[in-house]
Amino acid sequence: MWYYEKKLQYPVKVSRCNPMLAKYLIEQYGGADGELSAALRYLNQRYTIPDKVVGLLNDIGTEEFAHLEMIATMIYKLTKDATPEQLEAAGLGAHFVNHDHALYYHNAAGAPWTATYIQAKGDPIADLYEDIAAEEKARATYQWIIDISDDPFINDSLKFLREREIVHSQRFHEAVEILKEERDRKKVF
């Protein structure tokens, strides 16, 4: 069960109407290495991972939904009052025809989100390595979006999100270390 706090994890500000940037940002909304994939991947793996790391997957999976919400806010603000002409000029003509101004779970190229983006192998090491890879891929995606974006406010929020990917990757590495530990080995400090 979740409690909802009606605020964003980190503020989202937008400098100007820029549907083109929204088109790129949607990669992190419904793309393979996006926040939706991340949240669903971790929360789903919780059930079959050793008890010691269930809490970590729960917390990170939950935080990914907070990131998803930030991305959604950015995309919404960037396109909110864009005219059909502006959307078309930004390459979002097909999106407008199908969805009007609604957000949809697809990647920057328009391919809809699919469960094949995520894995659940059941092997704890395999699953955690997938999670680490996913965090690094998401970090890289944020880098490329920051590179292509000229909106300093959006970039500020994206830099926050990129940093969170680094922290999550570190935590997943630590989870692997926990699962590697010999259970009855004495800890020496």
């Binding site: 050793p50 699962l179 590697k180 530990e181 010999e182 259970r183």
Partner: peptide, 11 residues
């Protein structure tokens, strides 16, 4: 030295 399998007692 390490073991190639780890076991745990789930809830």
């Amino acid at each position: 030295s390490f073991t190639l399998t780890k076991c745990y007692s789930p809830f």
